[in-house]
């Protein structure tokens, strides 16, 4: 029996029933830009960087199920411009000052913006003033860099079993909130070894005393594009799940 197949940019991609477009693409070695998606967790679908055209309609590849015969457009000028606009929006919404951020060089937002050819942020900056939480001895939470991907929320809930994080507020006033009476990280059971501290794609959650350990030129995205790095890391995870 032939496996079901769909096309990404004209290239046939086979998939297993139940896979999303993102999973099928990853397994086939096709990179679809993404930030809030990480195949280790339930898909979330909030960043919209993985927007692809499915039979002419914009869909999030990370949540949309693959189906036999679908025509998917991914690497097109139009979609990459849309994605670049999203990275620009994320840059102006928060305070993403790469030269002073410890995550620089290992940051997925930055790397995705490189990949998409973003040279400026285009929009006026919001310069938000959100509460910084340095209370924990080993972990720093800089909310000004949060992009609301909810990966820490999912990791803390589904892997660590601690439910340390949630997204609160509404609209442009959304905030990452912390599960303790004081609202501070120090009063939660979070530990530096938790998955939740390792999944932040940006520099919002950092392990203290490890900043700038890797010299410029040797950091993750100094050596590889986010496309290469992402496929290398995520392909085995998808393969393991779907065989």
């Amino acid at each position: 029996m032939t496996r079901p197949t769909f096309q990404i940019d004209g290239k046939p991609v086979t998939f297993t029933e139940g896979q999303t477009i993102m999973e099928a693409a990853t397994a086939a070695g096709v990179y679809i830009p993404h930030l809030c998606h990480n195949p280790e967790f339930e898909p979330h679908g909030s960043c919209k960087l993985c927007t692809v055209k499915v039979n002419g309609r914009n869909c999030s590849a990370c949540t949309f199920p693959a189906a036999d015969g679908q025509e998917v457009l991914n690497d097109t000028a139009e979609l990459n411009e849309l994605r670049r606009t999203i990275t620009q929006m994320l840059f102006v919404e928060g305070n993403h000052l790469c030269p002073s951020c410890e995550k620089s060089g290992n940051c997925q937002l930055q790397a995705a913006a490189y990949f998409l050819g973003m040279t400026d942020a285009h929009f006026p900056f919001f310069y938000p003033r959100r509460e910084l939480d340095a209370s924990h001895p080993d972990i720093l939470l800089d909310r000004d860099r949060c992009i609301f991907c909810a990966l820490c929320v999912r990791a803390s809930r589904d892997v660590d079993g601690k439910n340390v994080f949630a997204i609160g507020g509404r609209g442009i006033d959304s905030r990452l909130i912390v599960n303790s009476p004081s609202g501070r990280l120090a009063d939660t059971p979070i530990a530096a070894t938790d998955k939740a501290t390792r999944v932040c794609p940006v520099g919002a959650i950092l392990i203290k005393r490890h900043g700038f350990e890797v010299p410029i030129g040797e950091r993750v995205y100094d050596r590889h594009t986010i496309a290469e790095e992402s496929l290398e890391r995520e392909e085995p995870i998808v393969e393991a799940r779907h065989g």
Binding site: L49, I86, M89, L90, F123, I147, F148, R170, G171, S174
Partner: peptide, 21 residues
């Protein structure tokens, strides 16, 4: 719309605020 955006997705959360401004 900027006031009522839930804030889940980037385009609406940031876009409606930018449109308003």
């Amino acid at each position: 719309f900027a006031h009522e955006s839930c804030g889940f997705c980037t385009p609406c959360r940031v876009g409606t605020a930018l449109l308003k401004n």
